[in-house]
Write a protein that binds this DNA or RNA. Sequence first.
DNA 1: CGCTATTTGTTCAGTGGTTGAATTATTTGA
DNA 2: TCAAATAATTCAACCACTGAACAAATAGCG
Lengths: 412, 412
Amino acid sequence: MPRSDAPPGPVRQGSLREWNLAVVLGRIAAADRPPSRAELAARTGLTRATVSAVVEDLLAGGLVREAEPTPRTGAGRPSRGLVLAADGPAGLGLEVNVDYLAACVVDLAGRVRHHSVLRADLRPVSPAEAVARLADLAAHARAEAAREGLTLAGAALAVPGLVDDAGLVRLAPNLGWRDVPVPALLAGHPPLTAHVDGVPPLVVDNEANLAALGELHAGPAVPASFLHVSGEVGIGAGIVLDGSLFRGARGWSGEIGHVPVRPDGRPCRCGARGCLETYAGQEAILAAAGLAGADLPADTATTRLAELAGAGDPAALHALADAGTALGVAVAGVVNLLDLDTVVLGGGYAPLAPWLRPPVLAEVSRRVLTAAWSPVTVRPAALGGAAAAVGGAGSVVRRILARPAGWLTRQP
Amino acid sequence: MPRSDAPPGPVRQGSLREWNLAVVLGRIAAADRPPSRAELAARTGLTRATVSAVVEDLLAGGLVREAEPTPRTGAGRPSRGLVLAADGPAGLGLEVNVDYLAACVVDLAGRVRHHSVLRADLRPVSPAEAVARLADLAAHARAEAAREGLTLAGAALAVPGLVDDAGLVRLAPNLGWRDVPVPALLAGHPPLTAHVDGVPPLVVDNEANLAALGELHAGPAVPASFLHVSGEVGIGAGIVLDGSLFRGARGWSGEIGHVPVRPDGRPCRCGARGCLETYAGQEAILAAAGLAGADLPADTATTRLAELAGAGDPAALHALADAGTALGVAVAGVVNLLDLDTVVLGGGYAPLAPWLRPPVLAEVSRRVLTAAWSPVTVRPAALGGAAAAVGGAGSVVRRILARPAGWLTRQP
DNA sequence: CGCTATTTGTTCAGTGGTTGAATTATTTGA
DNA sequence: TCAAATAATTCAACCACTGAACAAATAGCG
């Protein structure tokens, strides 16, 4: 029988160079101190000659700079360290959420160079109007980036809902959006980014997915594979495998909110019973803690809940323990299935992590078979607030690092 | 921040040819009728000159043959179709299970060329003795393969348990194996396969994983991504994404048996409560159907259960309905999380599929959000009995198709 | 202070592999 | 029988990597 996967692309002559550009650039990005050409040659297995040629291209394209202060060490001609350019291409991350808009710019090295948040209740606003405001915010971010010598090479927009490949927002229940063609709505505005070969000008993706990717930018100790659970009104999971997001067959992976945790339990708005969301969703937790009627904005309510729990309020503590247990049951299933070793509590769960973590950990270690061999880490997300915007911007940058040839060919 | 994934390998000069060998061979394998060189050039994007050169290598290496009967069509010089060689390298699949040993040989085209099963209760047998019997079976298979002009290029052994990277069987509870170093035990016997660059002589893997891969060989209509659930004493899931197996961070993915379906339900031997296994494991189903005391071999008991259900026995029907519901709850969670569109009921579930399928489907369509957009297919495994052996042999073949250079360099 | 050892980075001829165009091969249809 | 059409091969050109030799720059040592 034939293999059912689509055959990979051909390799033309030039693909060789393209690939080695990515190999060398990737090494420079992954190194903990500026590597020399000779070091790169040793580590990649390429000849010094080849590395020199490749680096020349990268320097000419402005993706890499020579680090001026050369660290003196031992005898021999001093090496010239190479670093990612701080003024080359950058990624633009955008986010539309229920009560804020956000934009941020991340440079090649993964540093957040600009970040702005505009608080506003977007539920009463029409999608077209929301997108228009977002375009303004993006224009501002673009100006800021230009002022620092950065060129925006692509943008990623995070939306709290289901998105299809074409960028159509199929359903964003908490925003009240349905079949909103975001790219088309943006068409009237000035383009967000420069055109770069192989990097789509705008990618629209689920907020939970991009927030998970954001975690990759949080620090050097981030593992390559982890589960990122973010609790908002719904509960989304981002599955990061080997440094990139697992999207599923149709791009709708990560719907952990409707994993059954008590099959005959509370009815859920999805029509089934006992979904995780009915036990560990924001509304459920707040209701259990007695904060239901307050009708506060989502993040304020969460802050309030954390305060109550910190002060030892029994209802709050109980609500969080219950939610944590339910979450732990669902997470244990995922970890058993995918054999992950790290679980990150993000989004609305991050500030509540001190209280959610113990019950989650308890359920996980009780239910995960391989926990005996190697323990599962459960920790709060390192990035706060608009992690999805950072993750989106980072995904653009990562795409350039993975395929630098696209950027090089478009340089004047 | 640096990307945390390890940078990919370098590309030497020759890798180019290696890659294009794989591209062209992959196209030949994926085509539904023997493609000509010109057709391959058009489809791969390579020049006709390059394709000719690549095909020459493949012909010389015995991986491909020219199909003699040329289908006449239109004007012009007739094309010579290319097919995968029926007498080139082949894969050896082996399986040790509770009550049988199996061996099979699959050729490049994915056809099962030899298959033999040896029924025997292996629980009272020592691991060394079991491996010795397996080696005999393998030797027979090798002789049969040689008689048909096939050379075994690698072997895969399926074991019902946890296996680590080195081929050490950490734990196979139903066999009573613990830390059995299968490759070492085989060292005393004649080698199973020829040595081929880049293809390990023996891979040991979980039976559920390989059985899932076997499904890929079942027919042309198999999707590239699916969940394969096989119910034996334990319940294993093989996750196939895009034609290849998802193994998880440490290779222990797929432990669906201990996904919680009723968190406060029956105690499980794993120490937790309400695991799927306690509701849809073989023992649980048989007990519920009143077949507990019979102490029949596993497959006989399953057959008996299917007979009872076919005859309308209420206890049997009830047991299957309950098991199906529990299975559906767990599967719904997986499908929500990974966004798969096909679920295959394999192993011990295959013969029970007529009764398990309706409740599984009911739970899945009730609980899976995206089921409204695109329905989830639930169907029995196409391969019967020793699907794991076929899947293992197929995985060897697939590795050769993916990296044909390894085979070509070892040819005399 | 000058010499040598040492390491970095570049230059250059050599080679493998793809490209594109021209050429040969083989058939159908007028 | 010849022209048109399609398949496959041949061949010079070119591109990118390789390996070795070479130039550059420094520390250490007498």
